[in-house]
Design a protein around this nucleic acid. Structure first.
Lengths: 214, 214
DNA sequence: CATACGTGTTACTAGCGGTAACACCAGTCT
DNA sequence: AGACTGGTGTTACCGCTAGTAACACGTATG
């Protein structure tokens, strides 16, 4: 039970864990969020109980899987957000990075957004949104932090930043989801439209003739 | 098999259908989206096969259920959107209506947003967002229509309106979801923050001292 | 009376998430 | 050597789900 041995064991366990996650990744990429534990175990060349020993339950496995992808996406978003350019350019780069990511791997994106939580009715309480889409929450919080750090918003700075963070992320997400399904325009056009919205063109637009205006 | 009799039968079937939907509503309100067909049948005082004869499968029942609530919510939103007031007031009223609805019945809201699609792996294709949240899509499309009808947005009017419709709905949804979970402020404050965002305060805000600005 | 039909049931299948119980194989202590 | 311990793996099972086949009752029509 000396240190070296325990390190070896831990390393071995970690490697196994990574292998299992990669197998799970392949299956989820193939079958979508309904991938069964049986299928994942088979893909990894083992049987179910091993999965359960490593990840506790299906939620644990899915959380581990989601964390990998979420971390990766957040890294690219941070890079776009931190680039040395002026505000509008950076906003557009961030939007474009997100949209490029969901465009490149729609199955992964779908898995992250709709984890399809549990079959046997665990969790009874109606804690809305608690387990819904951790990726959206994390993106919202990160963006809120960036906004609060860099913008001067007066006394209610923190509250505004958090609302805006989650709001902007939601805007990006919903628009991206719709765009991915219908492909009504190019990615660049979508980015420009969204940036225009954030830049207040909605308030600035004139009423159409004959109506009371929106 | 004359016309009168067939009408009678159809009316009877429709009434039964409505009763079943109301029972399903109660169960979903109590158990959340994981409500089982067994539980719904028991609540309605009948057994499973009858449910399947009426709705085909679980997806069919859920779709019928979702349509009722979606229609009701969209009606209130339309009312707020059509009220005789100026643009900003109307936007705020619409936001507030939506937020009040999800605040009043979080279980219904959650059911509408996360239908928890099927246990046995139906649908193999990776049609992202197709089955995800029909409510969001419908709200986005309706808002897009209103925007296009009433605002003068120049040559790319239609495209801008659709992007904005889905984007604004997504913003409202994500912010609402987060707000419902954390309750960081009052509903009125949230509405004001979101309206500020739509009114371009993000672009207008000054940089914080010492940083390059967001 | 028989025949069709709508309404309801029981009893079942196949598959899911999750677990208990057992087998094997390494290294360690006496 | 021989017992003992801990990690890795298995088979076989439980309780649950969605969904279905097959059968039973009541009721109008020929």
């Amino acid at each position: 039970m000396d240190t070296t041995q325990r390190t070896d064991q831990q390393r071995s366990a970690d490697r196994r864990r990574r292998e299992l996650l990669e197998a799970a990744d392949r299956v989820v990429l193939r079958d979508g969020p309904q991938a069964s534990m049986n299928a994942i175990a088979a893909e990894a060349g083992i049987t179910k109980p091993i999965l359960y020993r490593h990840f506790g339950d299906k939620g644990g496995l899915y959380a581990a899987l989601a964390k990998r992808h979420t971390d990766a996406l957040l890294d690219s978003l941070r890079a776009a957000l931190d680039a040395p350019a002026e505000r509008r350019e950076r906003v557009e780069a961030t939007l474009d990075t997100y949209l490029a990511a969901i465009e490149a791997r729609p199955q992964v994106y779908r898995f992250l957004m709709h984890p399809a939580e549990g079959g046997t009715a665990t969790e009874q309480g109606f804690d809305v949104g608690k387990h819904s889409a951790p990726l959206l929450r994390r993106m919202g919080e990160e963006l809120a932090q960036v906004i609060e750090d860099r913008l001067d918003l007066g006394p209610e700075s923190q509250q505004l930043a958090r609302v805006w963070g989650h709001g902007i992320v939601g805007m990006m997400h919903a628009a991206g989801d719709w765009w991915l399904g219908e492909r009504p325009c190019s990615r660049a056009e979508l980015v420009r439209c969204l940036a225009d919205l954030l830049w207040g063109r909605l308030a600035a637009a004139g009423d159409r003739v004959g109506g009371p205006g929106f």
